[in-house]
Each structure stands twice: as structure tokens, then as C-alpha cells.
């Protein structure tokens, strides 16, 4: 990275976390925060779409007919837990415990996989009941919003696996620490988005 070495913040100061020790890594983390802002706005647009269309059920089923309370409660519980274990991974990283960190990341990935499998089975049962993307505007908005989140989680699973491999190869360095930190930001972000999906889509859906 073309950084001006003459004025880079002095490196290796003890108070700075590992992932922030190099200026270029700090830049990437800052850049990723901005990316998360854009991604949040993308979800906001999809939420807006959903809130315009959720009454537009056409000839298809409404929220009450397709939402499965046990299913989405389980999904919520799993994803919230995974966010917690992901936080534990970062905590271990800051204490320099590589093995613990990798273990917590593996737990996070496994929780993510089970979340995605539950969501896919939910989608499959909806489709089996004839509630598809093509049925009505409500279902188009529902599948797109929840599906976009699901795609993000799937991407996160693959990503975290890749970081895990790199941690195994290179050990805990400022670079791998930065990568692990960024993927954890992403994971927590998806958790926040899910809380909105849980509230706006599922809770309001079954309450209406």
C-alpha cells in the first residue's frame, strides 16, 4: 500500500489492537465500515419495498398462512448465538489465543450453516405450498428481503472458512487479525439486519 511512511502512526504501540497496528489495515477496517453503511442502505431499500408491498397478497397466501413461529424463532436464536460466539472469537484474538479463536470461529460457522439450512427448509415448504416468488408482490418482497439476507450469511460462511484456513497457514499476524476482525464486523452486521427482519417481517406478520 502506498502509504506515506514518514508520518504513519508509530507502530507497535501496546494500546493499539493487533488488527490496527498497520496503517493500511486500519484503512481497510475504516473502509469496511463505510461499505457496511452502503449495505445497510441496500437493506433499508428492501425493507421499504417490503413495507409498501406486504399487504399486496394478491391471490396468494398472507403472512399468517406461511410464517412458522417455531421455525423463525429457532433461526433467530441460532443467529443471535452465532453473533455471540463470533464476538468470543474476537475476544480470544485480542488475548492472542489463536486456538480458542479458531474454535469459536468454527462454532460460528456451524451455527451459520444450521441457520441457512433452517431458512432453506422454510423456503422449501413455502414453495411446496404454492407460495413462490411469482405468486404475489408480498411474496416477491418477502423472498427477496429474507433471501438477500440469507445470501449474505452464506457468503459470510464461505468467507469465514477462508479466513480460518489463512489463520491456520499464517498464524495470528496483523494481516490475518485484520481479516478476521472485518469478517466478524460483517457477521455482527448481519445479525443486526436479522433483528429487523425478525421484528418487521415475522413478528408484525404473525401479529397482523
Amino acid at each position: 500500500m502506498a502509504m506515506a511512511d514518514s508520518f504513519v502512526k508509530s507502530q507497535g504501540s501496546q494500546s493499539v489492537p493487533l488488527e490496527y497496528t498497520h496503517e493500511e489495515d486500519a484503512l481497510r477496517i475504516f473502509g469496511f465500515w463505510i461499505f457496511l453503511a452502503t449495505d445497510l442502505l441496500l437493506f433499508a431499500s428492501l425493507f421499504a419495498t417490503y413495507s409498501v408491498l406486504y399487504r399486496h397478497v394478491g391471490h396468494g397466501p398472507g403472512p399468517l398462512q406461511i410464517f412458522d413461529i417455531t421455525g423463525f424463532s429457532a433461526e433467530t436464536f441460532i443467529l443471535l448465538t452465532s453473533s455471540f460466539t463470533c464476538g468470543l472469537a474476537t475476544y480470544s484474538m485480542h488475548r492472542g489465543q489463536k486456538a480458542a479463536m479458531m474454535a469459536w470461529m468454527i462454532v460460528t460457522i456451524l451455527l451459520g450453516v444450521s441457520f441457512i439450512s433452517l431458512e432453506l427448509s422454510e423456503f422449501a415448504s413455502d414453495i411446496a405450498r404454492g407460495a413462490t416468488l411469482q405468486t404475489s408482490a408480498f411474496l416477491s418482497a418477502f423472498f427477496t428481503l429474507v433471501g438477500t439476507h440469507g445470501a449474505h450469511v452464506s457468503f459470510g460462511i464461505v468467507w469465514m472458512t477462508l479466513i480460518l484456513i489463512q489463520l491456520a497457514i499464517h498464524g495470528l499476524t496483523p494481516t490475518t487479525a485484520r481479516k478476521a476482525f472485518i469478517v466478524s464486523l460483517y457477521w455482527h452486521f448481519l445479525d443486526v439486519v436479522w433483528i429487523f427482519i425478525f421484528t418487521i417481517v415475522y413478528l408484525l406478520g404473525v401479529m397482523s
Binding site: L53, Q134, A137, T144
Partner: peptide, 11 residues
């Protein structure tokens, strides 16, 4: 899908 169609609830 039916986001912006004039059928099945699109807007």
C-alpha cells in the same frame, strides 16, 4: 416477481 408489475399487487 411482482414488484413493479401491474398484476398481483405490484406497484
Amino acid at each position: 416477481a411482482h414488484f413493479f408489475t401491474i398484476f398481483d399487487g405490484g406497484n
